[in-house]
Design a protein around this nucleic acid. Structure first.
Length: 513
RNA sequence: GCUCCCUUCGUCUAUCGGUUAGGACACCAGAUUUUCAAUUUGGUAAGGCGGGUUCAACUCCCGCAGGGAGCACCA
């Protein structure tokens, strides 16, 4: 039998710049690369684009890697630092120069800025035509450090064959000679990217559509170097709910914020996979399924809008589907990332609706319920002090009714209430009047309960309802109010079971005293 | 201004020349119910506009309009 033709495994990469946290749009780009690579059985590489020495920070790199790991996205090999490859970039530039495919340009930044200004004023395309392209190098000024520009074609068009966007042509007359190395000797982004992608053996470049025009420029570099072009796939951007590029006024942007808002990595993966990509009518699918199904040819071209409501719905599904132990782990990772209520409010862009920030809603509730707890970390500590096992016991009734980890924590606040509870106005009403004698009767019966579990407790309360000819709700609501301090809570019998006999009875007595 | 991209329910999308234009979220109504959820049944809701091509167009072509992205010695 003849062996199947050896197929060169694909190589993809994600190349964030370490100038901040992992942007959620970047996370999606990484996800698409990752899904495609896993689907094709290739290698997924990471490159840190740290040539901007002013803004790049090692802490950001660490944060980005941590966020990717949290998202469940892994990569092959060690991340490559672009800055560490400057020498190599310069070598290639020198080679281009030697071959006449690039030239030294003695135009200063000030001069080109001015030229550009004039072009804009005259409403002309902003194409800088350097006089040094064909000038005699002998006439070069001695006191100006030159940049190196690519001697790009002026006629015809540069074609980008894109797996998502199709064939896109850029007229060469609209592309000026790309600066490949700045006058300070540092290579520019569009040049370094090509050299690095080539050297790393990248076969498929999957990135945001905002890079489409860069693909034109980079294609010219590939051609000048005589290198084989990779396949390009420019995936549509994610826009804010108003259709504009995702920015501060749309709220959260960084992956860590999504973690702090209580979203699960699995939900985020599922949600982002469905933006601009689909597999028939499938909406909720596992990562394994996504890998099996994912193909670039099924990626659409139009930008999608970020929909927190749909994300929340998916997140709810994943919360319900996640085993309790794992969920507790997510809780422990989520809470410490939450700032104080005051800070959250202060950081909120006025255009962002507070309801779309689960972390803010949680801290608001905390501020009312336990003013002594200031940050998410404090809240976590409070849960731990009360006993992590209490939270674990409460989880089953909590996860049914939460869309985010923050909502779940909010539902669990009854665990850490301090006696006597401060009931909110609606809850207060529930424990007054006729409720008082009913509660007193219940206290007596509950004290005598043999078994302290939800079913047994429910039986006792139901019995009293039957005996007194009242509806169960008339007893359950006062109980709820007394135990949780609110009129909305997890099921009362679950709360009683989790709180235990002593605490339950104490809270009930507090309200009947 | 120049270049490039996009346009199906409010949102994410299916459709790949012939469908009652399907699904999901959201929304509305009913069921269930100790609150809130969850679950479940049903419902409202879409092919930007104008021209072609074709027996037939959401689907192909052209124009217009609207939206988006890019236009640095940033990445």
């Amino acid at each position: 039998m003849k062996p199947a033709p050896a197929m060169k495994p694909i190589v993809t990469r994600f190349a964030p710049s370490p100038t901040g946290a992992l942007h959620i749009g970047g996370a999606r780009t990484a996800l698409f690369n990752w899904l495609y690579t896993k689907h094709m059985g290739g290698k997924f590489l990471l490159r840190i684009e740290d040539t901007d020495r002013e803004r790049s920070k090692d802490a950001y790199t660490a944060g980005i890697l941590d966020s990717l790991t949290w998202m469940g996205i892994d990569w092959d090999g060690e991340p490559v630092s672009q800055f560490s490859r400057v020498k190599r970039h310069q070598e290639v530039a020198a080679q281009l120069l030697a071959e006449g495919k690039a030239y030294r340009c003695y135009l200063t930044k000030d001069e080109t800025d001015k030229m550009r200004e004039e072009l804009v004023a005259q409403k002309l395309p902003q194409v800088i035509l350097s006089p040094w392209r064909d000038a005699d190098p002998e006439t070069a000024p001695k006191d100006v450090k030159p940049s190196i520009r690519l001697r790009a074609a002026r006629e015809g068009a540069t074609l980008v064959n894109d797996l998502v966007q199709g064939d896109v042509a850029f007229p060469n007359k609209d592309l000026d000679d790309l600066i490949v190395v700045r006058s300070d000797g540092i290579p520019t982004y569009n040049f370094a990217v090509v050299v690095d992608d080539h050297d790393m053996g990248v076969t498929h470049i999957i990135r945001g559509a905002d890079h489409l025009t860069n693909a034109g420029r980079q294609t010219q570099v590939y051609q000048a170097c005589g290198w084989e072009l990779p396949a390009f796939a420019h995936i549509p951007l994610v826009h804010g709910p108003d259709g504009a590029k995702l920015s501060k006024r749309h709220g959260a942007q960084g992956a860590p914020e999504f973690r702090a808002m209580g979203y699960l990595p699995a939900a985020l993966r599922n949600y982002f996979a469905r933006l601009a990509w689909s597999h028939g009518d499938d909406e909720i699918f596992s990562t394994e399924q996504a890998i099996a199904w994912f193909d670039i040819k099924d990626v659409g071209k139009s930008a999608g809008r970020f929909d927190y409501v749909k994300l929340a719905d998916l997140n709810g599904h994943y919360i319900r589907a996640t085993p309790d132990g794992e969920l507790l782990g997510h809780m422990a990772r989520c809470l410490p990332g939450i700032a104080t209520y005051g800070d959250l409010v202060a950081a909120l862009d006025p255009k962002v609706k507070p309801e779309t920030r689960p972390d803010l809603m949680l801290m608001k509730a905390v501020a009312e319920f336990r003013p002594d707890i200031k940050t998410g970390a404090d809240l976590l500590a409070a849960f731990q002090a009360k006993g992590w096992d209490k939270l674990a016991a409460a989880l089953p009734s909590l996860k049914e009714r939460a869309k985010t980890m923050c909502e779940m924590a909010q539902g669990a606040l009854y665990l850490i209430a301090e006696r006597p509870l401060k009931l909110d106005a609606k809850a207060q009403k529930q424990v007054e009047g006729e409720a008082k004698p009913a509660l007193l009767a219940l206290i007596a019966k509950l004290s005598a309960a043999n078994d302290w579990n939800a079913t047994a407790l429910e039986a006792i309360v139901r019995q009293q309802a039957d005996e007194t000819g009242t509806k169960l709700g008339n007893l359950a609501q006062p109980l709820r109010a007394a135990l949780a301090g609110r009129t909305v809570s997890p099921p009362v019998f679950d709360m009683m079971a989790v709180l235990g006999r002593e605490e339950t009875l104490a809270r009930l007595r507090d309200q009947t005293a």
